[in-house]
Design a protein around this nucleic acid. Structure first.
Length: 448
RNA sequence: CGGAGCGUAGCGCAGCCUGGUAGCGCACUACACUGGGGGUGUAGGGGUCGCAGGUUCAAAUCCUGCCGUUCCGACCA
């Protein structure tokens, strides 16, 4: 959605907020994306919400393509279903418990296995209705002892959670593989290198649990992986109907583990090939079998007419965490460097001197062209000083910036800056017009 | 939950030790000059000093309790 800066709400900060220790938190506050409400709980301001929504939409599109069906489950859940699964007492203080006016025990959902199992046990009666994968994108709450790192470790957070239902472990593996591939595609669209790492499977065991980790110096967990990961192409152009086992093998054969799974003494690869870095978990997929279906009586009739407990898997992506994660992976001393797919605006028109006839006219012409051609465009028509405008554009990380003012326009010159490469080129007003009039993604024009 | 900080204007801070008219920078308002990397000047507005007790003639300052928040650790998507 296009926007004139004079009509926008973009409360940027020149100084660093003292509470923000890491880059993403600091930059999100400075760029006017979020405002802290209380520890680990944030309001999302227009710019931040725009990014959050774009990430959410990419996640949604990829889930849909993988055959998952979107639902929406409540944030407030009844205690009963958690008592059924046995987790009401197990979960501890991380679960925010509340009572309604009738003194019934309720809770703000930290996750939704019980809720989705309840849906399926009600409506799925036959193995012929399977496989099924239901997902939702919803706010969750975990009363973390120590929230930190801004939205990366908040108490309230937006998650995508998918839940698969099958009538056997073998069938569940197919569902698992689809989500594995779906995650590769999802993170690739955000220009992230998310390495699937073996994760703890808990009491279920087996090899069906992976955490998707992006590398960042400020990551919360230490990770160990084979050096060949650094050059591996994680973009997966794969048909979901194909046999995915070879694909999964290809992406899991190289060593990659988080520090809790890595045993230096038993590491299968040589130290010379091992890289140690820090990472941020942005996704987690795992198979947990019949844990909840059994406890909650969610079974279907099998082909032989006998009941069989549903085999379930769950697949999470931290949507709000990704906003911080992407910034951690992509920023410099001036501010955020958004990948175009999630940038709040893909292109900005910076009018250095509003009120100047030629500058106003060209800005308007470029802005209209951007709108006509479907570009998410921010038009800076404010009366800030030139330096402040340019600093703000870099801070909020606009990928393409068209800068124009009286000085350049005397020679018919507009400046085009590419935030990611740092390249700035001078182009004619006409070339600027054709640049912003192009369909699809913007590319650096060939200069004559 | 263990350990350590910090709460003074929207933001960042000084003042507290040694009690006596609440300050600075940024931001904000008005005007002027400016305008190619957070510009300059002039004139303004804005604070029950986190809350509650206590000591004192007098508390931002000293004492006690509480609350909030941040960092390190343990824990976690």
């Amino acid at each position: 959605m296009h926007m004139k800066l004079s009509n926008y709400f973009l409360p940027v900060l020149k100084e660093n907020p003292k509470d923000a220790q890491i880059a993403s938190h600091r930059l999100m506050l400075r760029a006017g994306m979020i405002q802290q409400s209380s520890a680990g709980i944030y309001s999302w301001l227009p710019l931040g919400l725009k990014v959050l929504s774009k990430i959410e939409q990419i996640v949604r599109e990829e889930q849909d393509k993988a055959g998952a069906l979107e639902i929406k489950m409540p944030t407030i859940q009844p205690a009963e279903i958690w008592q059924e699964s046995g987790r009401y007492d197990d979960y501890g203080l991380e679960m925010l418990r509340v009572k309604d006016r009738h003194d019934r025990d309720m809770l703000y959902g930290p996750t939704n296995e019980e809720q989705v199992t309840d849906i399926c046990r009600t409506h799925i009666r036959s193995y012929r209705s399977l496989p099924l994968n239901l997902y939702h994108i919803q706010w969750k709450f975990r009363d973390e002892v120590r929230p930190r790192f801004g939205v990366m470790r908040g108490r309230e957070f937006l998650m995508k959670d998918a839940y698969s239902f099958d009538n056997s472990a073998e069938a569940a593996r197919v569902a698992y593989n689809k989500m594995f591939v779906c995650y590769l595609k999802t993170f690739a669209r955000m220009e992230l290198t998310a390495i699937p790492m073996e994760a703890d499977t808990g009491p279920i065991g087996g090899d069906m649990s992976h955490e998707f980790i992006i590398l960042a110096d400020t990551g919360e967990s230490g990770v160990y992986f084979h050096k060949d990961w650094m050059n591996k192409n994680l973009v997966a152009d794969i048909d979901y109907d194909a046999d995915l086992e070879p694909v999964i093998k290809k992406f899991t054969e190289l060593y990659a583990r988080t520090d809790e799974k890595h045993e230096p003494d038993n590491c299968p690869i040589d130290v010379s090939e091992l890289i140690q870095k820090r990472g941020i978990e942005v996704g987690h997929i795992f198979y947990f079998g019949t844990k909840y279906s059994h406890a909650m009586g969610a079974s279907v009739s099998g082909a032989d007419g006998k009941p069989v407990d549903l085999h379930m898997g769950s697949y999470g992506i931290g949507v709000s965490r990704l906003v911080g994660g992407i910034i951690e992976a992509s920023h410099d001393e001036k501010g955020i460097i958004w990948p175009e797919s999630v940038a709040p605006f893909t292109v900005a028109i910076v009018n250095l001197k509003p009120g100047h006839g030629t500058a106003d006219a060209l800005s308007k012409k470029l802005y209209d062209a951007a709108i006509m051609n479907g570009h998410d465009c921010l038009y800076d028509d404010s009366s800030e000083s030139a330096g402040a405008k340019l600093a703000t554009m870099d801070l909020i990380g606009i990928p393409w910036q068209l800068v124009l003012g009286p000085r350049g326009l005397e020679k018919n010159i507009v400046e085009l800056k590419h935030r990611k490469s740092g390249k700035t080129i001078e182009i004619t007003a006409e070339l600027a017009y054709s640049f912003i009039s192009s369909k699809g993604s913007l590319t650096l024009p060939e200069t004559a």
